[in-house]
């Protein structure tokens, strides 16, 4: 998300300056391990569960979550990636270009789809993702896993699995990357 957030936030494509670190890489691993158990608990196992990471920030997290689930249950879950650029509601208001090609090589009908993203903010990306998913079939249910819920929702959307709830100001930027989770802002 951080990258997407930077790209669509004035100054477009600015440079992220971290002010504080709120999660270390180990913290992220531990949170994912807990979230993996929650996914199994909520769905009574992993039957029909598929993971879809949102481009770009959600993709590595979905991969890590799949690794954890494999370790716990010894099952290889179908893993896809989704870019929601063409479904956004702010096309024409700011630069909107896909970061990568969507890759969902399996049918979603009757599946339990766990969408994975790094930061949940206004909820508009998730709305676009829900819209996109309907073009790939009719899932039995869709659940949402995010590493950071930073608040400021503009739509009635809530996460099912959360790494950390992080109170923020609207103008701050949350960056999830190899250094962990950082809070700061973008500058040109």
């Amino acid at each position: 998300m951080a990258e997407r957030e930077r790209r669509i936030t004035p100054p477009y494509g600015g440079v992220f300056h971290a002010r504080s670190r709120v999660m270390s890489p180990d913290d992220i691993q531990r949170a994912l391990w807990r979230m993996a158990h929650e996914v199994i608990e909520r769905n009574h196992g992993l039957d029909n569960v598929v993971l879809i990471g949102l481009q770009t920030g959600g993709v590595p997290l979905a991969g890590l979550l799949a690794d954890d689930l494999r370790q716990i249950e010894d099952i290889e879950l179908p893993l896809g990636t989704l870019d929601v650029a063409f479904y956004r509601d702010d096309i024409g208001l700011r630069p909107v270009l896909p970061e990568a090609v969507t890759d969902i090589p399996f049918d979603l009908s009757n599946k339990i789809v766990v969408l994975v993203d790094d930061v949940l903010f206004t909820g508009r990306t998730i709305r676009a993702a829900l819209d996109a998913l309907t073009d790939f079939g009719r899932p039995r249910s869709v659940q949402l896993a995010v590493m950071i819920d930073r608040g400021h929702r503009e739509l009635p959307i809530r996460p099912d699995y959360v790494g950390k709830n992080l109170p923020t100001r609207r103008d701050e930027v949350v960056n999830v990357g190899p250094l962990g989770v950082e809070l700061g802002e973008t500058r040109k």
Partner: peptide, 18 residues
């Protein structure tokens, strides 16, 4: 960008609301 639209064209519903 064409790469992304090739993927869209291969879907069961080859249409986006962009």
């Amino acid at each position: 960008l064409t790469d992304s639209f090739v993927e869209v064209s291969e879907r069961a519903i080859p249409k986006v609301p962009a």
